[in-house]
Amino acid sequence: MANPIRRGESGSQVSSWHVSSNTVTPNQQTSFILPHGLTLRHTVNAGTTSVTIPAGITWVYAICVGSGGGGAYAGGGGGGVAWGWTLANSTCVVASTTSNNQSGSYTRYGHIIAGGGSGSAGNAGGFLGGGGSAAQSNGATNYWGMPGGANGTNGASPTIGRIGSGAGGGGISSANGIAGSNGADGISAGGGGYCQTGAGALANVSGNGGNGLTGGGGGGNTTGSTTSNLGGNGGNGLNILTGAITTGASYSGIFGGGGGGIAGNASGQNGGLGGGGGGSNAGTGGAGILYIFY
């Protein structure tokens, strides 16, 4: 009797498509979250709440990206990313753009869910894979249980955040001439720190956002130095459909740049589409996005 579940590569002998010898290049793509061989059928943006999946398609592969955290002084963390197979569903929730200070929101399809990046102050912090921000919460553990990274320490000798699925934000400097620290790299990067007081003649520089699939926002809005106060750059993101870098924005004066999202570049202080963290001084976090493959 013929094998009832044979379906191309995955139904064939494993050794025929992923050989054990290291003398040849396997024909399987090495991307760890993009589902090789499937077609992107739906790109769903914030505000859309329904998806039509054709009859007969039982399982789909979803990539969910939460919105980035909003910036204030420290940069916001990148939005969380979650991926996996789930049963086809006609409803969805996609996170909207995040306003100043606030932490990002979630994107969910079926039982795949990604949280928002941490905001710079105010409400509850990042969750479900969201990147951290020094003025708020650490990076968060994601859907797959991959641990989040702690924020850097604050003070006269601030430290960079720790790597994690949701990476930690950079520490906040309390001393003139000592830069705020950078956010850490991760799947969802941490936001950059800033100089909290920093009064004096030495130049104050804020930390850059970390790099990841979703980049963190740059810190800034520091005014303590009598000579120079500069924000930090936003971290880069990665467009997983093309492999291209999505760029974080450069600082502008005292204001930090937004982080690149998974689907778009940052624009000034605002994070890019697909979870880019917001830069300092009211930068918005990039809206979430949902990709569905089958």
């Binding site: 579940i5 995955s10 399982w59 592969y61 197979w85």
Partner: peptide, 12 residues
């Protein structure tokens, strides 16, 4: 023959 990491195409 059931070795695969995906449930794609499986039937209830």
């Amino acid at each position: 023959s059931s070795f695969s990491d995906t449930p794609f195409g499986l039937k209830l």
